[in-house]
Amino acid sequence: MVRRKLTDEEINLWHRVVERAERLHVNGNPTRPLPKPKPNRAPAGQDAPQAPRPNPAAPPSPSLTVKPQPVQMDRKAFGRMKRGKLVPEGRIDLHGMTLDRAHPVLTRFILSSQASGRRLVLVITGKGKESKDQGPIPVPRGILRRNVPLWLSMPPLAQAVLQVESAHISHGGEGAFYVYLRKVR
């Protein structure tokens, strides 16, 4: 793309705009540019991954509201599950259900799956709808996506569930969960 030169009229117009513009002040102090952040350097020979800093003004994403659990299952199977290599033995789709309808359906599905000897099931919640009202307070989306992990961690499902993790993109990504069930005793 070739840049064109500004005409004398455009330059004069710009200077008039700059003369009339007022500097923004925050709390009575003129704003100053923030200093550049210093890069975090890892010790020699090590690459330290930098975790993204959460934006305090943004609502927490649903995946961040669920606390990461320590691995309760076989680490090798856990790794295969996270990579989408383990095929779920059962699945339930809760799309479009209300909380009152989804909770008993999920409870019945998990308990019957455990009773039938299944170990890995897929619970599809969907990502949630975008809110039509974009008011001053952001409304988090995905009511089922936020509540399903909580339901799985409370009785009677807590006794049947060994591990809950977000699904691999091939099985639904952020809109689904892997639920690894305990063996029937």
Rank of each mutant, 00 (worst) to 15 (best):
L99I: 12
G128K: 05
Y180A: 08
R141T: 15
S131A: 13
Q134E: 11
Q159W: 07
R146P: 02
I92A: 00
H168V: 05
V148R: 05
A51I: 00
P54A: 14
I137S: 13
V66Y: 08
K76N: 12
P136W: 10
D133K: 15
P88I: 03
V105I: 09
A176E: 05
R41V: 15
L64D: 13
I169C: 07
A42W: 05
V179A: 07
K82R: 13
P68T: 04
K82H: 00
M81E: 08
L120C: 06
S113D: 02
E89G: 12
P156L: 02
E89T: 02
D133Y: 14
E130G: 14
G135Y: 03
I143V: 14
I92Y: 02
V66H: 09
R145A: 03
V87S: 14
E165W: 00
A44R: 15
M154L: 13
H168Q: 06
P136K: 10
Q163L: 07
G84H: 06
H95W: 04
P43E: 10
A167G: 11
G126P: 01
T125V: 05
N147D: 08
K36P: 11
G172W: 00
G45C: 00
E89A: 10
P49E: 14
D100C: 03
H171M: 04
R83Y: 04
G126C: 01
P60G: 04
R75K: 11
Q134R: 12
G45D: 04
P140T: 10
F177G: 01
L157Y: 05
R80M: 14
P37R: 14
L157N: 02
L86K: 11
S131Q: 14
M73E: 15
G96W: 03
V87K: 15
S131T: 13
Q72F: 14
A58N: 09
G126F: 04
L111V: 03
H95P: 01
L181C: 05
A160N: 01
P59A: 09
V87L: 14
A102M: 06
A44P: 15
A167M: 06
G84Y: 04
Y178N: 14
L162H: 08
L162V: 06
Y178A: 03
G142I: 08
